[in-house]
């Protein structure tokens, strides 16, 4: 259920509006705050979809609140309601990022219409359920879409937002976290529901890394978190094996590919091989000279029975694959 935060220092107005908006209780729930400070506490602790705020309030007024929302919660639309409705005030509110300005007094229906319109806009591009975010987001990039994507991780219920401008990931938000940290958290979610808004209020690019390297890093982080099944069965009485992070990580990379493509997908071995380190460094250096940026992955065929997919790292990770393997699919799973 979407939540609308109503911010006004006048208790009576809050009560009247709350009562009026309760007719839409099947579409959204109303939360209330008496000033900007209370509103920010509410934004930190709850998933708010839209804010309706007065301008003149004690402690933190509506303009200040608007500025904080634009900076920290840019995906949340703000509707301003105010008794001071001079053209100058309206212009300032619009410039500050408000999506609508409603002069007091106003009929409740007018506010309801604005709220419903803005909430619908958040899902105008469609809603999808139970999918892996990484493949879908690559499509967004490929189609060079400008959009705001709201995601919910089904297992945890966590919510996050990604902002794309012409296919480039500009920013992300999960709670108070923004930028790369938020993007990495979202990209590690592998069972999400998402809704698409066909525009993006963000203009400042907070994320400088490309989507593929972020997907790859998120997958690695996720792999590191996932516990492997214990080699010793329960009650075997033997000492628990000392985990070897490198082999665990390699097993997980392989398992991830085989989960998606099946065991016969052609990945025959996964190992770390320092022999590749120097070559990977040189390729990366050439890539930067050629303005292609850092190397993310290499597929190398030497006409031998096995080709190699190499992932740079402190020590290069190498997947030995059958030359007839679905190379493109494997590379896409690995983030390339």
């Amino acid at each position: 259920m979407k939540k609308v935060l109503l911010v006004d220092d006048d208790r009576e107005i809050r009560l009247v509006l709350n009562q009026g908006l309760s007719r839409c209780a099947d579409s959204f729930a109303v939360r209330m705050a008496g000033d900007g400070i209370e509103a920010l506490e509410c934004l930190r602790s709850q998933e708010i979809s839209l804010v309706v705020t007065d301008l003149k309030m004690p402690r933190m007024d509506g303009f200040e609140l608007l500025a904080v929302i634009m900076e920290s919660y840019p995906d949340i639309p703000v509707i301003v309601i105010s008794g001071f409705s001079s053209p100058n005030m309206q212009r300032l509110a619009r410039q500050g990022g408000a999506v609508a300005f409603i002069a007091k007094p106003f009929p409740i229906e007018s506010l309801t219409r604005h709220i419903v319109k803005m909430l619908r806009k958040q899902t105008e591009g469609g809603t999808l359920h139970n999918l892996s975010s990484s493949i879908f987001l690559q499509l967004i990039e490929m189609e060079q879409k400008t959009c705001t994507i709201r995601l919910e991780n089904k297992p945890s219920g966590n919510k996050g937002i990604l902002f794309f401008v012409q296919g480039e990931l500009f920013d992300a938000r999960v709670g108070d976290a923004q930028g790369v940290a938020a993007a990495l958290e979202i990209l590690a979610w592998d069972q999400v529901s998402l809704s698409i808004q066909n525009d993006c209020s963000i203009r400042e690019k907070r994320i400088r890394r490309n989507l593929y390297s972020l997907i790859l890093e998120a997958a690695r982080r996720q792999d590191e978190k996932t516990p492997l099944p214990s080699a010793a069965g329960p009650g075997s009485g033997s000492e628990p094996p000392v985990p070897d992070p490198v082999s665990e990580s390699l097993l997980r990379i392989r398992a991830r590919i085989e989960n998606e493509l099946g065991v016969g997908c052609g990945v025959e071995d996964a190992f770390q091989d320092p022999v590749w380190n120097e070559r990977v460094k040189r390729i990366s250096r050439h890539g930067e000279q050629l303005k292609l940026g850092k190397l993310i992955m290499a597929y190398v065929g030497r006409g031998e029975p096995r080709d190699h997919i190499v992932l740079p790292g402190e020590t290069a990770t190498v997947l030995a694959v059958n030359p007839k393997c679905p190379r493109g699919k494997i590379m896409r799973i690995l983030g390339g």
Partner: peptide, 23 residues
């Protein structure tokens, strides 16, 4: 510059490289 990259790949007869900004 392009040829130098090709040379550093050694005896590989087929290589696909994915970089941050291109392949």
């Amino acid at each position: 510059d392009w040829f130098a990259l090709a040379v550093c790949l050694g005896n590989a007869h087929e290589t696909e490289l994915v970089f941050e900004r291109g392949r």
